[in-house]
Protein backbone atom coordinates (compact mmCIF):
# COMPACT_ATOMS: atom_id res chain seq x y z
CA UNK A 1 0.00 0.00 0.00
CA UNK A 2 1.42 3.30 -1.01
CA UNK A 3 0.31 6.38 0.86
CA UNK A 4 -0.42 9.44 -1.21
CA UNK A 5 0.67 12.30 1.00
CA UNK A 6 -0.36 14.78 -1.65
CA UNK A 7 -4.03 13.97 -0.98
CA UNK A 8 -3.56 14.86 2.67
CA UNK A 9 -1.65 17.95 1.73
CA UNK A 10 -4.29 19.14 -0.73
CA UNK A 11 -7.14 18.67 1.68
CA UNK A 12 -5.46 19.72 4.90
CA UNK A 13 -6.77 23.32 4.74
CA UNK A 14 -10.30 21.95 4.42
CA UNK A 15 -9.76 19.50 7.26
CA UNK A 16 -8.57 22.31 9.47
CA UNK A 17 -11.53 24.44 8.47
CA UNK A 18 -13.80 21.49 9.27
CA UNK A 19 -12.04 21.03 12.57
CA UNK A 20 -12.93 24.62 13.43
CA UNK A 21 -16.60 23.94 12.85
CA UNK A 22 -16.40 20.65 14.76
CA UNK A 23 -14.99 22.49 17.75
CA UNK A 24 -17.58 25.23 17.37
CA UNK A 25 -20.47 22.78 17.11
CA UNK A 26 -19.44 20.86 20.20
CA UNK A 27 -18.75 24.01 22.22
CA UNK A 28 -22.13 25.52 21.40
CA UNK A 29 -23.72 22.11 21.94
CA UNK A 30 -22.27 21.68 25.41
CA UNK A 31 -23.11 25.28 26.41
CA UNK A 32 -26.68 25.30 25.14
CA UNK A 33 -27.09 21.74 26.34
CA UNK A 34 -26.00 22.79 29.83
CA UNK A 35 -28.41 25.70 30.04
CA UNK A 36 -31.33 23.61 28.76
CA UNK A 37 -30.15 20.61 30.76
CA UNK A 38 -30.33 22.48 34.06
CA UNK A 39 -33.82 23.66 33.21
CA UNK A 40 -34.93 20.14 32.22
CA UNK A 41 -33.36 18.59 35.31
CA UNK A 42 -35.17 21.03 37.60
CA UNK A 43 -38.38 20.38 35.68
CA UNK A 44 -38.02 16.66 36.12
CA UNK A 45 -37.35 17.08 39.83
CA UNK A 46 -40.43 19.14 40.69
CA UNK A 47 -42.96 17.59 43.01
CA UNK A 48 -45.73 18.07 40.48
CA UNK A 49 -46.30 15.02 38.31
CA UNK A 50 -47.99 17.04 35.54
CA UNK A 51 -44.95 19.29 35.15
CA UNK A 52 -42.51 16.38 35.38
CA UNK A 53 -44.19 14.53 32.55
CA UNK A 54 -42.99 16.53 29.50
CA UNK A 55 -39.45 16.72 30.89
CA UNK A 56 -39.32 12.99 31.51
CA UNK A 57 -40.45 12.33 27.96
CA UNK A 58 -38.04 14.86 26.52
CA UNK A 59 -35.23 12.89 28.13
CA UNK A 60 -36.75 9.56 27.10
CA UNK A 61 -36.99 10.65 23.48
CA UNK A 62 -33.56 12.21 23.06
CA UNK A 63 -31.75 9.48 24.94
CA UNK A 64 -33.82 6.66 23.53
CA UNK A 65 -33.53 7.40 19.81
CA UNK A 66 -30.37 7.61 17.70
CA UNK A 67 -28.83 11.04 17.25
CA UNK A 68 -28.60 10.19 13.55
CA UNK A 69 -32.37 9.93 13.32
CA UNK A 70 -32.79 13.12 15.36
CA UNK A 71 -30.52 15.05 13.01
CA UNK A 72 -32.48 13.93 9.96
CA UNK A 73 -35.83 14.69 11.60
CA UNK A 74 -34.70 18.12 12.69
CA UNK A 75 -32.97 19.06 9.46
CA UNK A 76 -35.63 17.86 7.05
CA UNK A 77 -38.70 18.02 9.28
CA UNK A 78 -38.48 20.68 11.94
CA UNK A 79 -36.08 23.31 10.63
CA UNK A 80 -37.94 23.99 7.33
CA UNK A 81 -40.77 25.38 9.47
CA UNK A 82 -38.45 28.14 10.68
CA UNK A 83 -36.12 28.83 7.74
CA UNK A 84 -35.82 28.30 4.05
CA UNK A 85 -33.45 27.21 2.75
CA UNK A 86 -32.37 25.34 5.86
CA UNK A 87 -28.84 26.04 6.98
CA UNK A 88 -27.25 22.66 7.83
CA UNK A 89 -25.01 24.25 10.46
CA UNK A 90 -28.08 25.61 12.23
CA UNK A 91 -29.69 22.17 12.07
CA UNK A 92 -26.55 20.59 13.48
CA UNK A 93 -26.42 23.09 16.35
CA UNK A 94 -30.07 22.53 17.20
CA UNK A 95 -29.81 18.73 17.04
CA UNK A 96 -26.62 18.50 19.07
CA UNK A 97 -27.87 20.96 21.69
CA UNK A 98 -31.22 19.25 22.13
CA UNK A 99 -29.57 15.85 22.33
CA UNK A 100 -26.86 16.96 24.74
CA UNK A 101 -29.47 18.69 26.92
CA UNK A 102 -31.14 15.34 27.62
CA UNK A 103 -27.91 13.73 28.78
CA UNK A 104 -26.77 16.80 30.69
CA UNK A 105 -30.15 17.00 32.44
CA UNK A 106 -29.50 13.56 33.86
CA UNK A 107 -26.00 14.62 34.88
CA UNK A 108 -27.45 17.64 36.69
CA UNK A 109 -30.14 15.56 38.35
CA UNK A 110 -27.65 12.97 39.56
CA UNK A 111 -25.33 15.73 40.78
CA UNK A 112 -28.05 17.55 42.68
CA UNK A 113 -29.46 14.38 44.19
CA UNK A 114 -26.02 13.26 45.31
CA UNK A 115 -25.88 16.19 47.74
CA UNK A 116 -26.84 15.14 51.25
CA UNK A 117 -30.44 15.97 52.20
CA UNK A 118 -29.18 17.67 55.33
CA UNK A 119 -27.70 20.48 53.22
CA UNK A 120 -31.09 21.50 51.92
CA UNK A 121 -32.62 21.15 55.37
CA UNK A 122 -29.93 23.29 56.97
CA UNK A 123 -30.36 25.98 54.33
CA UNK A 124 -34.14 25.97 54.67
CA UNK A 125 -33.94 26.00 58.46
CA UNK A 126 -31.97 29.24 58.14
CA UNK A 127 -34.88 30.85 56.34
CA UNK A 128 -33.66 30.45 52.77
CA UNK A 129 -36.24 29.82 50.07
CA UNK A 130 -35.95 26.69 47.95
CA UNK A 131 -34.45 28.76 45.13
CA UNK A 132 -31.90 30.43 47.42
CA UNK A 133 -30.91 27.08 48.93
CA UNK A 134 -30.42 25.65 45.44
CA UNK A 135 -28.40 28.63 44.26
CA UNK A 136 -26.12 29.17 47.24
CA UNK A 137 -25.85 25.72 48.80
CA UNK A 138 -26.85 22.82 46.56
CA UNK A 139 -25.76 23.81 43.04
CA UNK A 140 -22.23 25.02 43.92
CA UNK A 141 -21.57 21.63 45.47
CA UNK A 142 -23.37 19.68 42.75
CA UNK A 143 -21.53 21.43 39.91
CA UNK A 144 -18.22 20.27 41.30
CA UNK A 145 -19.40 16.67 41.17
CA UNK A 146 -20.79 17.16 37.68
CA UNK A 147 -17.50 18.21 36.07
CA UNK A 148 -16.23 14.67 35.30
CA UNK A 149 -19.45 13.36 33.70
CA UNK A 150 -19.95 16.68 31.94
CA UNK A 151 -16.46 16.42 30.48
CA UNK A 152 -17.28 12.93 29.33
CA UNK A 153 -20.40 14.24 27.61
CA UNK A 154 -18.29 16.92 25.91
CA UNK A 155 -16.03 14.25 24.44
CA UNK A 156 -18.99 12.18 23.26
CA UNK A 157 -20.54 15.29 21.73
CA UNK A 158 -17.35 16.19 19.92
CA UNK A 159 -17.25 12.78 18.25
CA UNK A 160 -21.00 12.64 17.63
CA UNK A 161 -20.89 15.98 15.83
CA UNK A 162 -19.41 13.97 12.95
CA UNK A 163 -22.95 12.78 12.23
CA UNK A 164 -23.72 16.28 10.98
CA UNK A 165 -21.78 15.31 7.85
CA UNK A 166 -24.90 13.53 6.67
CA UNK A 167 -26.79 16.81 6.31
CA UNK A 168 -23.74 18.42 4.67
CA UNK A 169 -22.73 20.62 7.56
CA UNK A 170 -19.11 21.24 6.60
CA UNK A 171 -17.44 19.97 9.76
CA UNK A 172 -14.43 17.69 9.91
CA UNK A 173 -16.09 14.45 8.89
CA UNK A 174 -17.83 16.15 5.97
CA UNK A 175 -14.46 17.10 4.51
CA UNK A 176 -13.15 13.60 5.14
CA UNK A 177 -15.95 12.17 3.07
CA UNK A 178 -15.53 14.85 0.44
CA UNK A 179 -11.82 14.13 0.10
CA UNK A 180 -12.43 10.40 -0.10
CA UNK A 181 -15.14 10.82 -2.71
CA UNK A 182 -13.06 13.13 -4.89
CA UNK A 183 -9.82 11.14 -4.78
CA UNK A 184 -11.17 7.58 -4.45
CA UNK A 185 -8.78 7.14 -1.52
CA UNK A 186 -9.78 5.63 1.81
CA UNK A 187 -6.84 5.55 4.16
CA UNK A 188 -5.41 9.01 3.68
CA UNK A 189 -8.51 11.15 4.29
CA UNK A 190 -10.17 8.97 6.93
CA UNK A 191 -7.01 8.30 8.92
CA UNK A 192 -6.17 11.99 8.85
CA UNK A 193 -9.66 12.84 10.06
CA UNK A 194 -9.44 10.16 12.74
CA UNK A 195 -6.11 11.53 13.87
CA UNK A 196 -7.52 15.06 14.16
CA UNK A 197 -10.46 13.77 16.25
CA UNK A 198 -8.00 11.90 18.45
CA UNK A 199 -5.89 15.02 18.99
CA UNK A 200 -9.04 16.97 19.88
CA UNK A 201 -10.38 14.43 22.36
CA UNK A 202 -7.01 13.84 23.97
CA UNK A 203 -6.43 17.57 24.40
CA UNK A 204 -9.88 17.85 25.92
CA UNK A 205 -9.16 14.97 28.28
CA UNK A 206 -5.99 16.71 29.34
CA UNK A 207 -7.79 19.99 30.04
CA UNK A 208 -10.53 18.19 31.96
CA UNK A 209 -8.05 16.32 34.12
CA UNK A 210 -6.41 19.62 34.91
CA UNK A 211 -9.74 21.21 35.89
CA UNK A 212 -10.64 18.20 38.03
CA UNK A 213 -7.33 18.32 39.87
CA UNK A 214 -7.74 22.04 40.38
CA UNK A 215 -11.24 21.61 41.80
CA UNK A 216 -10.18 18.74 44.01
CA UNK A 217 -7.52 20.79 45.74
CA UNK A 218 -9.72 23.82 46.27
Amino acid sequence: MDIRFDVIQDYLPYFLQGMGLTIGLSLIGILMGSVMGLFIALGKMTRFKVIQFPFIWYINFFRGTPLFVQILLIHFGVMPIFMSPVNPIASAIVSLSLNAAAYIAEIFRAGIQSIDRGQMEAARSLGMSHVQAMRYVILPQAVKRMIPPLGNEFIVLLKDSSLAAVIAAPELMYWGRAASGATFRVWEPYLTVALIYLVLTLSLTYVLNYVERKLATE
Binding site: G118, Q119, E121, A122, A123, S125, P140, Q141
Partner: peptide, 11 residues
Amino acid sequence: MVFQQFNLFPH
Protein backbone atom coordinates in the same frame (compact mmCIF):
# COMPACT_ATOMS: atom_id res chain seq x y z
CA MET B 1 -32.03 24.61 64.21
CA VAL B 2 -29.00 22.50 65.05
CA PHE B 3 -28.73 19.05 63.52
CA GLN B 4 -27.19 15.81 64.67
CA GLN B 5 -25.03 15.71 61.53
CA PHE B 6 -24.04 19.42 61.75
CA ASN B 7 -24.89 20.01 58.08
CA LEU B 8 -22.33 22.74 57.62
CA PHE B 9 -21.87 23.86 54.03
CA PRO B 10 -18.59 22.18 52.99
CA HIS B 11 -17.91 24.56 50.09
